[in-house]
Design a protein around this nucleic acid. Structure first.
Lengths: 233, 233
DNA sequence: TTTAAAACATGATAAAAATCATGTTTTTGG
DNA sequence: CCAAAAACATGATTTTTATCATGTTTTAAA
């Protein structure tokens, strides 16, 4: 568990969008921040409600998901220590368009809206990092959008497993994905029916690319998985 | 055709991301901007090349599209007068991840990278508007992503027609979409095969929702089209 | 203006993916 | 620890969508 008693000493400080922010503003943020622990499954905020600030993950994992028109969940982002969330709605002046739920017990600091916005206007370093973050997210979303439109589910599942690896890495053994997601959540990340995700995971297992032990997924043949994802870029 | 002899007097100035930028910086931009006319079909920039600045549309229409892994185009944005493009790659420090092509004869000003970035760092008004723009684009991309994953093609086509209407509006008659897109382009906007887009447009015509005259598309029953799009949000 | 190419249209077929059905296993709350 | 619920798994079926094939119309260049 990381030290997050103060923002100044926070282990994630230079691993976050605040990396270039001036000491002076970090101190201000430190004074107004509110730290909290969210249990697995707890909701940080709900689609449709108003943002009162941004959330900064100190330790843990969070999923961000849209509710589709028919009620089906679409997971649009996976977040980890150092990641910030809740800024999209805040900057657009909207309600939240997605819900955030802790995937495991998670420590999160909350920074009030007014403070965040005022610092953003005063500190070009933070503002620029924020723009970079938004640009990167936009890029990721556009790539995903293209793949959803053009790639078959098998390739998208392989890509999703690689994406989970990129985001959360492996456990100590170096092959087990370091997060516990249900098959349904994997399907909602891929953008497919739960049964299809289950079926294809079984196929991947039969092909020896992965090993499945409940929610533990081991990547046995990363190169073949990359091939199965059929990534050009 | 709009006056774009100077940025100060540009008809799109307060209709763009520069609306809150300080006069002083607008003057600087005015001195370094380069105006150009692109003919229909001409390329502004190509996926994979490096950004040297941002483009500001004074008059005309532009499409922004990804090349999918198998070479299939995916149109990710439609742009019009007042819109800026090329900022995503520039802010991320990447190459362009999409290509921009003029959909009709289009007047565009080019603002060099160094100037744009320095003004962005000096002018919080511009920076904040930029963040808003990025946030709105991210929102749009995430909604589209969810719909691609969850909605049938018929609904997505209806939604796309409504989106085209929102973006480019109608001709003087108040019912004809004010842009000429090929069936293939419409398909690449919806994220489907060209034949499917053609087939469903014919269906919409049979249902009396639209009228088709070559590339001219008339929206006859907007309310039914909204219903066909099955939009909850 | 003519003519070749591109775009459009539509039917037939094939492939992909969702849904439905059913049984098994794992989780979880009392 | 046990029972109920949830999650997982897999086969069968249906629906959706893409692909293939072919003919027509439009567009654009010589």
């Amino acid at each position: 568990m990381n030290d997050h008693s103060t923002c100044q000493s926070c282990s994630q400080r230079f691993n976050s969008v605040f990396c270039k922010a001036k000491e002076e503003y970090i101190n201000q943020i430190n004074e107004q921040k509110i730290c909290n622990v969210y249990k697995r499954g707890q909701i940080l905020f709900n689609e449709g409600s108003y943002p009162f600030g941004v959330y900064c993950i100190n330790d843990g994992k969070v999923k961000l998901s849209h509710q589709g028109d028919d009620g089906k969940e679409q997971i649009i982002r996976l977040l980890k220590a150092g990641d910030v969330l809740g800024y999209r709605a805040l900057l657009s002046g909207d309600r939240y368009s997605a819900s955030a739920v802790a995937l495991e017990d998670t420590q999160i600091c909350f920074i009030p809206k007014d403070l965040f916005v005022s610092v953003l206007k005063l500190d070009p370093g933070l503002a620029f990092e924020m723009m970079k973050l938004l640009s990167d997210e936009l890029h990721r979303a556009e790539i995903k959008l293209t793949h959803l439109a053009q790639k078959p589910i098998r390739e998208r599942l392989a890509e999703t497993l690689l994406f989970i690896k990129e985001t959360y890495g492996f456990e100590e053994d170096g092959i087990t994905l370091n997060v516990r997601l249900s098959r349904e959540e994997i399907a909602n990340l891929v953008g497919t029916a739960t049964e299809s995700a289950i079926r294809l995971l079984s196929e991947f297992k039969k092909d020896g690319m992965v090993e499945l032990d409940g929610k533990k997924i081991k990547i046995m043949k990363p190169k073949e998985l990359i091939r199965a994802a059929n990534l050009q870029d």
